[in-house]
Design a protein around this nucleic acid. Structure first.
Lengths: 232, 232
DNA sequence: TCACATCTTTGCGCCAGCGCAAAGAACTTG
DNA sequence: CAAGTTCTTTGCGCTGGCGCAAAGATGTGA
């Protein structure tokens, strides 16, 4: 994928660049630093000084928050066109989470000064940033409500549907989650354990709602899953 | 409390107004609508059209998110100087939560057009809004991690400490939570039940960590509580 | 001051989900 | 293809915390 394609693609997909012309987007992207990473590498680390804000060009990140003793939770998956680590715009902060690549991933990073300068030159950027942050907050508030009020099986159904909407690819046999997603990750995403996720997915597979292999899930019957997620 | 005192106080306390002169703050506040509410009244309702953004002048709000069947969670308490419902700046949205007053409360509300106009006139406002939103997101990410990885007793200790920092008043016998806080609310805040909260607070009272009456909590031994919250 | 409403406490039984252990399945590497 | 690694499944026992029920405590309004 050459540079112009990247720019064009990011331009069309990114909420962060809405209200920005294609030329302006090219300028904005060119003034950041491009990072190419292989799978399972760390883009930034929780606790490290928050130097840069990143926009994912292609590939995918998972945003992981670590607890003192070993445990962790997955805050969110970040696909192409999405921005992360906005916190770095503000002075002297630390990254509140770790970003790890899922598959080969390219991202553009801007340091504080550059981003502030860009926001001054292109006012829509600041507004877009605010909108993106509000959307994140809204999503997390919904998940917080879920984890407070719902049973595990219901939470997993909602999680799978959410991930499906964000990263589903429609094929004949159902909607494929288009990145490797293990039982452990689904557990970390929903606040439960591998064992419980495994048992529940097995049960769903028996009902024909999903099909699954190692680190791969196909939702065959989204409708039943939606019904269940609303009336367990 | 007369108007100038309100302005002065808001000015000194509000993260939202940082980088704004006192005169400018007066202008900003005057261009909103002031709302005075008694205790336990609704400022805005989840699902209703998000017309206005609010700044609490004095008193306090609790931000409640309701689940389909009866259950609910408390997303956060909003004290004076704090802003809420920033989402209303963006078009055609609904309030994602309900705000209810705790005690008599005054707030200023700005509608979309006014707020957009103000942000154009006073650029720091937009930045402050972004910072406030990022702080909310950060706090909620921390609570999400807690609820995913910690047991109930630990979560309640962290919740109480958090509320204490935000709304504690130091007196001889300990740090008083300076608003009525029931067992039910603490349960809704931490994703558990009244029964469990009651049992745990009783146990802490026996240990001398807290004292409590109906809807009132005094933290006598914050240190022990901190130790426990970190190494249960 | 009495009736009523609301909040709190505690005993008790129960079960959703945790977590160990161990086996099996799938992918990787030399 | 053999050995090692990582992911998944399942049986089993256990327990943290849920939630009913009922009594007590505290506050409010007529």
């Amino acid at each position: 994928m050459d540079a112009s394609t990247i720019i064009e693609d990011s331009f069309h997909r990114s909420d962060f660049l809405s209200g920005i012309t294609e030329q302006q987007a090219a300028d904005i992207l060119n003034r950041g630093n491009c990072v190419r990473l292989k799978s399972s590498q760390i883009l930034f680390r929780q606790g490290g000084p928050a130097h840069k804000t990143f926009l994912v060009l292609n590939g995918r990140l998972k945003l992981i928050k670590l607890h003192e003793e070993g445990k962790e939770t997955i805050l969110r998956y970040i696909g192409h066109g999405e921005i992360t680590a906005i916190i770095s715009v503000f002075k002297e902060k630390e990254y509140p989470a770790t970003a790890e690549t899922i598959g080969a991933t390219e991202a553009v990073g801007w340091d504080k000064q550059t981003m502030v300068q860009l926001m001054l030159e292109y006012p829509p950027l600041a507004v877009n940033m605010l909108r993106c942050t509000i959307n994140r907050l809204d999503e997390l508030q919904n998940r917080y409500l879920e984890i407070c009020t719902e049973q595990v099986e219901q939470r997993i159904s909602r999680a799978l549907l959410r991930i499906m909407k964000q990263s589903g690819r429609r094929e004949e046999d159902g909607i494929h989650i288009d990145f490797p997603l293990s039982r452990q990750e689904l557990a970390d995403y929903t606040g439960t354990t591998v064992y419980t996720v495994s048992r529940i997915l097995s049960a769903w597979e028996k009902k024909g709602w999903i099909k699954s292999k190692r680190e791969q899930i196909i939702v065959c019957d989204p409708h039943s899953l939606v019904l269940f997620s609303e009336h367990p």
